Each structure stands twice: as C-alpha cells, then as structure tokens.
Simulated assay, not measured.
Amino acid sequence: MTQPDRMELLRSRCADLGQAEVARRLKYSPSAINQALKGTYKGDLFNLLTRVEEVFGSTIVDCPCLGKITLGKCAANRRLPFITVNPARVALWTACRACEEKQ
C-alpha cells in the first residue's frame, strides 16, 4: 500500500469513526491524527501511516511460521517479547527478526 493510499485510508476511517476513535485504535493522540490530516504533523508520518495500514488495512503477508496473515497480526506478533518456554514463540521471534515486513 502506498503512502497516499494509507492517507486516504486514514481519512476514510476518520470520516466513518471520528478522529478520537481512530486515534484510540492507533494509539496516537487525537491531535496527532488531526495534524496528519491537515499535513502539519511534525512526527514521523511514515510510522503513523504504517500503523494505519496495520490497524485498518487488509494487506496480507506470508509469515514463515503462521502462513498468510494480515499485516496487523504480523505487527502484533512482531512486537511480542521473547519467551523461551514456548517453542512456537521462539520460532516466531526468530522468524520476525529476519522478516522483510519488519519495520
């Protein structure tokens, strides 16, 4: 998904849900969302729009451990801490570190 596509997805979700709800789901402040929409956001817009795609997008990635999953599920698994007592989590943690989807 391109940056303009992600921005359009952000605009669409804000129209549907409202800026405050979109901000809550993205874990950004409502003012950050407002600034991004106005084009005055001083933070890293790439990170914000990547989060938009993770939360609201329908991009499918091919995970070496889990198969075809959404980018949102990929990001959630990628952020899990390393835990040695679960072999599946060890495999996932190792695969996530080498994955090209890693941001």
Results as ranks from 00 to 15, higher is better:
R13F: 04
N86L: 01
C65G: 01
A20V: 15
L17N: 10
A88S: 09
A36M: 12
R25A: 07
P64E: 05
R51M: 12
E8W: 08
E101F: 12
A95C: 12
D5P: 01
R51Q: 14
T94S: 11
G43S: 03
A98V: 04
V22E: 01
Y28T: 02
K73F: 05
R89Y: 01
Q103L: 12
G57Y: 05
R6A: 15
V55G: 08
L66R: 14
G18R: 10
T84P: 02
L49Q: 00
D16H: 10
L92T: 07
T40P: 00
T40A: 09
D44C: 09
T59E: 14
G57D: 12
K73Q: 13
T94F: 04
F82P: 00
Q103V: 11
L66C: 11
K102W: 06
S29W: 02
D5S: 11
P4L: 15
L92G: 10
R13N: 06
V85L: 00
R6K: 15
G57C: 10
Y41M: 09
D16I: 08
E8R: 14
V22F: 01
M7H: 14
T50G: 07
L48I: 09
D5M: 12
V90N: 00
L26R: 07
E54W: 13
V52P: 04
K42M: 08
I33L: 08
T94W: 03
E53D: 15
Q35H: 01
S58Q: 15
E100M: 11
R51N: 06
F56K: 12
V52A: 05
R24E: 12
E53C: 03
C99Y: 01
V52L: 09
D44R: 15
V55I: 15
G67T: 04
A20N: 14
A76G: 03
R11V: 10
Q103W: 14
P81A: 10
E54P: 02
A36R: 14
P30Q: 10
K42F: 05
M1G: 11
T94Y: 08
A91K: 07
V55S: 11
N77C: 06
A75Q: 07
K68N: 11
P87L: 00
E8T: 15
D62V: 08
K68L: 05
G43W: 01
V52E: 04
S31E: 03
F56R: 08
A98T: 04
L66Y: 08
I69Y: 00
C14H: 11
T84M: 13
P64C: 05
V52F: 03
C14P: 09
T59H: 09
R78C: 10
S31M: 06
C63K: 00
L71A: 10
C74E: 07
T2R: 11
N47M: 11
A98D: 09
A23S: 09
A88Q: 13
F46L: 14
A95T: 07
L48C: 12
V61L: 06
C99E: 02
R78Y: 12
P87Y: 00
A91W: 02
F46Y: 13
E100P: 07
C74P: 02
L48W: 07
T94Q: 12
I83R: 02
A76H: 05
D44W: 06
Y41S: 02
T94D: 11
E101N: 13
C14N: 14
A95Q: 08
N47F: 06
A98G: 04
I33C: 04
N86H: 02
K73I: 05
P30W: 04
